[in-house]
């Protein structure tokens, strides 16, 4: 399953997509995020499974445009630490 966390407002679409089929539950993405946006939890969208997967913390979901901004300067943009840390390539940013 692809869980898209984030929102769309007048200024654009801001979603972090996590592919829970690819996510292996290693948790490597959690400590590398400077803003501590990610956490490991039981898959909330498949209540009948007990798989532990990465998710965007609830309190961050409505402000990732701001929280993720330091990793996304208008110029001189580097690869995002969360995506670099994810060996199976389960994390994607929509903007």
């Amino acid at each position: 399953m692809i869980a898209n966390y984030g929102y769309k407002d007048g200024s654009g679409e801001y979603f972090i997509g996590i592919d829970t089929d690819k996510c292996n539950g290693c948790g490597d993405c959690v400590p590398v995020c400077p803003a501590k946006v990610l956490e490991m939890v039981a898959d909330q969208y498949d209540p009948l499974s007990d798989k532990i997967v990465a998710a965007v913390r609830e309190e961050e979901r409505k402000k990732i445009k701001y929280t993720c901004a330091p990793c996304k300067p208008a110029s001189g943009r580097a690869l995002l630490p969360c995506m670099l840390a994810c060996a199976p390539g389960a994390i994607a940013h929509s903007w």
Partner: peptide
């Protein structure tokens, strides 16, 4: 404050 705040971060 946040919108203004983010706009600042975007431009540095």
């Amino acid at each position: 404050t946040q919108k203004a705040d983010i706009a600042v971060r975007r431009v540095g």
